[in-house]
Design a protein around this nucleic acid. Sequence first.
DNA 1: TATTGTTCAATACGTTCA
DNA 2: TGAACGTATTGAACAATA
Lengths: 317, 317
Amino acid sequence: MLSYNFNVLTCSSCKAFFRRNALKDGNALKCPFSGNCDLTYLTRKFCQKCRLNKCFALGMKKDLILPERELQLRKERRIRKKLDLKLNKNNDQKSCNSSSDETQDISGSDCDILDQFLFNNTISDEDIEAQVMDIETCLTSTAAKVCESVTPIVSINRPITDYNNNFNAIEGNRLTELLSASNSLKISYGSVVSVADTYIDAMSALCCNVEEMVIKSIEMSKNISLFSELCVNDQISLMKYGSIQVTYLRNITGFDPNTNQLTVPDEDPSQSVLVDLNAIKCTKLYVFEACMTAIILFDPSRPNLQHRKLVKTCTKN
Amino acid sequence: MLSYNFNVLTCSSCKAFFRRNALKDGNALKCPFSGNCDLTYLTRKFCQKCRLNKCFALGMKKDLILPERELQLRKERRIRKKLDLKLNKNNDQKSCNSSSDETQDISGSDCDILDQFLFNNTISDEDIEAQVMDIETCLTSTAAKVCESVTPIVSINRPITDYNNNFNAIEGNRLTELLSASNSLKISYGSVVSVADTYIDAMSALCCNVEEMVIKSIEMSKNISLFSELCVNDQISLMKYGSIQVTYLRNITGFDPNTNQLTVPDEDPSQSVLVDLNAIKCTKLYVFEACMTAIILFDPSRPNLQHRKLVKTCTKN
DNA sequence: TATTGTTCAATACGTTCA
DNA sequence: TGAACGTATTGAACAATA
Ligand SMILES: [Zn+2]
Ligand SMILES: [Zn+2]
């Protein structure tokens, strides 16, 4: 239970408390009393300021808290590791594909569909952060080149003062900005050059598309000044969930209910791929749709859940 | 700031504290000290037990807390009121439509679109709870009649053991169940009997559809045993957010990107309404889509947000 | 293996709204 | 007056690292 933490034998709660507070600037915490509270294990919660003081007094050292840059390094390492893992997995899958091309009956259970979908779409905080960081640097340090292709979008749209509306100047600006940003998400469909009508092809085309749209969404959000003003953490949280949904919203345009096919843009902007959703859907009845519904329902990240873990385990059955 | 609460002049926090704790059984709270803590406004958080004791000592009366049955009554009244309001509103809209049919130019700013959309889709906890309760009672007490129309759906689907898969029995059952439940969400489109091509018509058709799908989603969830096993609170939380998304997912089928029209089922199952999305979209450029994107992005209910309020204010600009 | 960081459910609080 | 909501803090369980 007790162990050495930051140079002193403490309980785990004091360890956490010290890490959370030791680096705060001196005025962040304030003693509501006379500043010399006598704290024990039981009364430790009475006064944060004095609790922290006691930590220091007993010899806890804030230098032992890893510095920002060290954390950053670790984080990057972790992210890199995760990406590598993903790439390897994808490659493994690819090499499998090329050997057995027409197999409609993929080996592995139906749950693989679920797994794959979840895996490929579960963008972790860190993934997003990596993306944001990436784009961030693109937009700032490599400014010249990238900004040329990003900034113009904002100014292309004419101000929306030219039709009668009830907006004031600020509202007008916000909306203009929003429309411009939104415009950059518009999907331009080139001529259809290939049809993805096997399970594997359809699935990978979809995944690529989702991935790209997520990135585009993030880029777009950079064009919304209000969004940029949020702290990075919140940007990430919002994007993590929002980008997927934006992707759905935007892709509706490419869907043809008669043929049950979805047109998605290719990497080459002048080309498109026609994804035959039947290839996914029909091979295994409506497993896909049902699973999607289940995923949406059993989302353990919903707010106000009392038993997140329970919900979580549901997804696994 | 101060007001009489439960017979004593108190601050609002003590009012809330008393309500939360006065009815707990005597052993629920325990003083970690000697049981005679001397509490002031500043130290009120030190010991709940003694805080509660002080409340009583100063004359706060727990009989003034409304009894369970009274709360139940109020709740039901509230829910009933809400439902009535809704019904009236729907009726009003209907009669409105018939009188002014061609109005393309709705009075009010663009923000009305946003407001209306948000308003009509914001399903409160109580709405959901009402629905859940409703369906709950339908499924249990009025079992005979309702179960005849609900249970069969579950058994219609043949067990999925008839094609080669790698499921074990439990997985198979889960999936069968999921597919069956999912099936009940399938939208059956009757022949198109009317076209909603004015703003009002399109908007109200959409809202009705969303409403109905939400209810269907809830009904469906009852058919998933794992879902039913969750506690009611979590069911509500999951449905609150999930049902809307399920609605999107399921409606994709009815969308024709060429004409930009969405077919939604009518109340009469043999009929459908063709909603011309241009009526909503084009009246005010792409305001709608842009706003939708913004709504999705700036969702203050996302988990892990550090500055929810800030995010919230964004939506208001 | 021991010390560090990360994550997250649980809890309580107090304001706002109806 | 209660319900709903948003928020802050805690501390244990877990993962990573050296
Ligand atoms: Zn103190
Ligand atoms: Zn006490």
